[in-house]
C-alpha cells in the first residue's frame, strides 16, 4: 500500500480523474445547470484542451528542470487527454445528435468547427493506439514522427474552440497563446535557452540520461 501511495503516477491519475468525478457529482446533485448537456460538452472539451496543453508541457519542463524522469508521466497524461476527447465525442454523438448518422455526417461536412474537431479526434486515435512500449519498439523512429501529430491536433483543438464561440474569443485565444508558447519552446533557439536557464539557475540534481529506460519517447 505504501509503495502505491508513494508512486506519483497514482496521484497524477487521481488528479486526472477529478474533472470526471466533478461531472458525476454535479450530475447527481442537479448541479449541471439549466442545460446539462451543454455543460458536459463544454466541460469535457475544456479538459481535453487542458490535457493537450499539459501533455505538451512535459518536454519543455524536462528541459527547464533537468528532471528527465518527468517523461514517465507523459503517456498517462496523453491517454487521459484521449479519454476526455472520447467523452466529448460521445457526448456529441449521443446527447447532441442521438446517434443519427445522417445528421452527424452532414454536420461533419457542413460545419467547419465540427469538421476540425472531428479530425482532431480521429488523429488522436493512432496516437493512443501506439502508446504501448511494444508499439514504441515496433515503430522505432517512426513512432516519434507519428507522435509529432500532437502538435497539429492541439492546433486543430484550439481552432475548433475558436470557431464555435459566438463572439467572445477571450478563452480560445488564451489556449492559442499557451499553445504558441509551448510550440515556440520547441524551436532550437528556445531549447538552448531552456537548457542555459537550467544550468544557470538550478544546477542539475537530475541527469537527463537517468530515464534511459524510457528512451523511445525522450526526445521530442
Amino acid at each position: 500500500m505504501g509503495a502505491v501511495l508513494r508512486n506519483p503516477k497514482v496521484w497524477i491519475a487521481l488528479v486526472c480523474l477529478l474533472p470526471l468525478v466533478r461531472l458525476i457529482v454535479l450530475g447527481g446533485s442537479g448541479g449541471l445547470g439549466a442545460n446539462p448537456i451543454e455543460f458536459i460538452t463544454r466541460s469535457t472539451g475544456t479538459w481535453t484542451l487542458v490535457g493537450l496543453m499539459v501533455t505538451l508541457m512535459v518536454t519543455p519542463l524536462r528541459r527547464l528542470t533537468g528532471r528527465a524522469d518527468l517523461i514517465r508521466y507523459r503517456r498517462m497524461l496523453g491517454l487521459f487527454t484521449f479519454f476526455y476527447a472520447g467523452l466529448h465525442f460521445v457526448t456529441y454523438i449521443w446527447l447532441d445528435q442521438f446517434f443519427d448518422p445522417a445528421a452527424i455526417a452532414k454536420d461533419i461536412i457542413k460545419r467547419p468547427f465540427i469538421t476540425i474537431g472531428f479530425s482532431a479526434f480521429v488523429l488522436l486515435i493512432p496516437l493512443a493506439a501506439t502508446s504501448t512500449h511494444a508499439m514504441m519498439r515496433r515503430l522505432g523512429r517512426r513512432w516519434q514522427q507519428l507522435h509529432r501529430l500532437v502538435y497539429l491536433i492541439a492546433l486543430l483543438g484550439v481552432i475548433h474552440y475558436l470557431w464555435l464561440v459566438k463572439k467572445d474569443l477571450t478563452e480560445p485565444l488564451i489556449y492559442g497563446a499557451v499553445l504558441a508558447v509551448l510550440l515556440a519552446l520547441r524551436l532550437p533557439w528556445c531549447v538552448t535557452w531552456l537548457q542555459t536557464a537550467r544550468s544557470r539557475f538550478a544546477p542539475a540534481r537530475y541527469q537527463v540520461g537517468k530515464a534511459g529506460a524510457h528512451g523511445a519517447g525522450s526526445a521530442q
Binding site: 442545460n35 448537456i37 454536420d107 460545419r111 467547419p112 470557431w163 464555435l164
Partner: peptide, 16 residues
C-alpha cells in the same frame, strides 16, 4: 453560417 438551426434543445428536455 456555423451551425444548424433545424433543431433546438428545450431547456429541461433530453431530446432535441
Amino acid at each position: 453560417p456555423r451551425w444548424s438551426q433545424a433543431k433546438e434543445r428545450r431547456i429541461g428536455e433530453f431530446f432535441k
